[in-house]
């Protein structure tokens, strides 16, 4: 198996608040890894360090063989196109239609004919079941639809790694299940490695090949969903009750 994400001794602090404290992780191609932990445990900070939105204080992040901290901006931007990021709020550009939101990440690629772009947008929107929402504005979409469009925008560049920041937060149980299923479908279709930040046990159960539990900025447990749910550690098992 090819390692696509390698995190070594990652540390990040905000003032005296040590959010990440020596994180070590490896993620293989095609693997879904769920990062589990309480709110404020540093899960989102971890994935923001992976795409260079935050600069680590110490440690090394290697993505697809490239050490993030050593990459010049241009090369980092090229690498970022291979990494999809689904934000907690979906972060759709609210002055653009759904179609324009999907076309936007394609603008830096070599000039493609409009017909080809249209076909790609339609194909990606169909894969998340939203082909009818193409000309809607983000304000006209429900929370679940926004997440789907956000995922479609992430998928349009056919990323090799996808980072999901709390994909089911704020959604009802049925929509949460649909989104979790969609994450699984994406894994199968694109063979992408995914890091899923969540504290939704059902989402973790559906999507995880492997799970990591973070407490006070450190990985305190790793394993499959079944292994961790049967853990004798009081803190870890409290998540699954």
């Amino acid at each position: 198996m090819e390692t696509v994400v390698e995190i070594e001794h990652l540390k990040k602090s905000f003032g005296n608040n040590h959010v990440l404290n020596d994180i070590n992780l490896k993620i293989e191609r095609g693997e879904n890894m769920v990062v589990f932990g309480k709110s404020g445990s540093g899960k989102s900070v971890l994935i923001k360090c992976l795409v260079g939105l935050l600069e680590p204080d110490e440690g090394k992040v290697v993505i697809l063989g490239n050490e993030i901290a050593k990459l010049p901006t241009e090369e980092l931007n090229v690498l970022r196109k291979k990494i999809g990021f689904l934000f907690q709020s979906a972060a759709l550009y609210d002055s653009m239609t759904v179609r324009e939101n999907l076309e936007f990440p394609l603008r830096d690629l070599k000039k493609k004919p409009q017909a080809e772009i249209d076909a790609l947008v339609l194909e990606t929107l169909t894969s998340v079941g939203l082909e009818d929402a193409m000309d809607k504005m983000p304000s006209e979409l429900s929370g679940g639809m926004r997440k789907r469009v956000g995922l479609a925008r992430t998928l349009i560049l056919k990323p090799e790694i996808i980072l999901y920041d709390e994909p089911t937060t704020g959604l009802d149980p049925i929509t949460s299940k649909e989104i979790s299923q969609l994450i699984l479908d994406v894994q199968k279709k694109y063979n992408a490695a995914s890091i899923i930040i969540t504290h939704d046990v059902e989402c973790a159960r559906i999507t995880a090949n492997r799970m990591v539990v973070i407490k006070e900025g450190q990985c305190i447990a790793q394993g499959t969903f079944n292994e961790l749910s049967a853990s004798t550690d009081k803190w870890v098992s409290s998540f699954f009750k």
């Binding site: 923001k48 795409v51 939105l53 901006t73 931007n77 090229v78 690498l79 970022r80 196109k81 990494i83 990021f85 934000f87 907690q88 709020s89 972060a91 759709l92 550009y93 609210d94 936007f104 990440p105 603008r107 830096d108 925008r153 560049l157």
Partner: peptide, 17 residues
């Protein structure tokens, strides 16, 4: 408001300046 709703971050992670 783009900053608060992470739209600027979304642009950055798409490789767009």
């Amino acid at each position: 408001s783009m900053k608060v709703t992470e739209q600027i971050d979304a642009m950055e992670v798409s490789g767009i300046n």
